[in-house]
Computed example of a mutant assay.
Amino acid sequence: MIRLSKDARREQLLEAALGVLRERGADGLTLVSLAEAAGVSRPIVYDHFGTRAGLLLALYRQLDEHHRAALATALEAAEPTVEVTARVMSTAYFACVTDIPEAGALSAALKGNPETEAAQNALDAEYTAMIARALAPYSSLSLATLELRCIGLLGAAEALASELTRGRTTVAAASDALAGLIVGDLTRR
C-alpha cells in the first residue's frame, strides 16, 4: 500500500466514495464498502470519517464546494446582466445535476440524522446567500426577501432536476425554464 499524506488519503477516499455512490447508490455507500473499494483497511476509513453519516456529509461538502467554485468562476466571467447571470446560474446548476446525478440520493441520505441534516442545511443556506448576492444588483428586493425567493427558485430547480433525471426533459429545456423563472421573478413589478 502506498503511504499518502492524510489530506491525499482523504481525497483518494472521497474519490472512491463517489465511485461507490455511482455503482451502488447511497444505500450501498458504507465505511466497509468504501474500504474495500479504496483498497485500504477499515480503520483508515473510520479514522477519516468516523461514521457513515460523517462519510456522507464529507462527500456532500466536497460536491457542494466543487459546485460553488464552478458557479463563482462562471459568474466572475459573465456579462453583468440579469439574463446572463440567470443563464450562468441555471447552466451551472444543471451541470452539477448531470455530472453527479447521484447527488440527489446523497442529499436524501443525509436527511433524518440531526447532525448531518443541520450541516446540510447550513451548506444550503450558504449557497442560497451566494446566489442572492449575485442577483442583488438586478433586484430592488431586500436581501432577506431575495434570499427567500432564491429558496423558492432552488425548490423549482430541484423539481426540474427530478424531471431531468427521469428523462422527461433535457438539460437545455430545464436550464431555459430555470433561467426564465429567475429573470421573471426579478423583473416582475
Rank of each mutant, 00 (worst) to 15 (best):
L146R: 03
E117T: 15
L57K: 02
T116W: 07
Y138L: 10
Y127V: 03
L141S: 14
M130F: 12
L59W: 05
A58H: 09
T165C: 11
E76S: 15
A86Q: 06
T81A: 08
E126I: 03
T85Q: 02
A132P: 02
L143C: 11
A134E: 11
L148G: 10
Y127Q: 04
E83L: 06
P80E: 15
A58L: 02
S90A: 15
G112T: 15
T145N: 07
A78P: 02
A95C: 05
Q120C: 07
A78N: 08
R68T: 02
A125L: 04
S162W: 09
L153C: 14
A105D: 10
V88H: 05
A157F: 09
A157H: 13
A118E: 12
Q62I: 02
A157K: 10
T128H: 06
L57R: 01
E126S: 07
A108E: 13
V88G: 02
G104S: 04
P114S: 07
M89Y: 01
A161C: 10
A86E: 00
L143P: 02
R149V: 14
L160E: 01
A108N: 13
S162I: 04
A118W: 08
I151F: 14
L71Y: 08
E83N: 05
R68K: 06
V84D: 08
A92T: 04
A109V: 11
L75R: 03
L123W: 04
C150K: 03
L148A: 13
T98A: 05
T81M: 10
D99R: 06
A125V: 00
K111T: 15
S139Q: 12
V97N: 06
S162F: 12
A95E: 12
S140P: 10
E76D: 15
I131M: 14
C96E: 01
A53I: 01
A156V: 12
L154Q: 15
A129N: 11
V88L: 08
P114V: 08
R52C: 01
I44R: 12
L154Y: 15
E115G: 06
E147G: 12
A69L: 04
E65A: 13
R52Q: 11
Y93D: 00
Y93L: 00
C150M: 08
D64W: 07
A156F: 14
G112M: 12
L56Q: 05
Y46K: 08
T165Q: 13
L123E: 11
P43K: 09
E158K: 11
L146V: 08
A108K: 13
Y93G: 02
A125W: 03
Q62T: 01
T91K: 09
A125K: 06
D99N: 07
Y93M: 00
A129S: 08
L75H: 10
R61V: 09
P101W: 11
N121Y: 05
A53S: 14
V97A: 10
S90T: 11
A132C: 12
A105E: 11
L154W: 12
S90V: 02
E79W: 07
D64R: 04
A159H: 09
A122N: 00
T73R: 13
E117M: 15
T73S: 10
T81P: 09
R61H: 05
Q62Y: 01
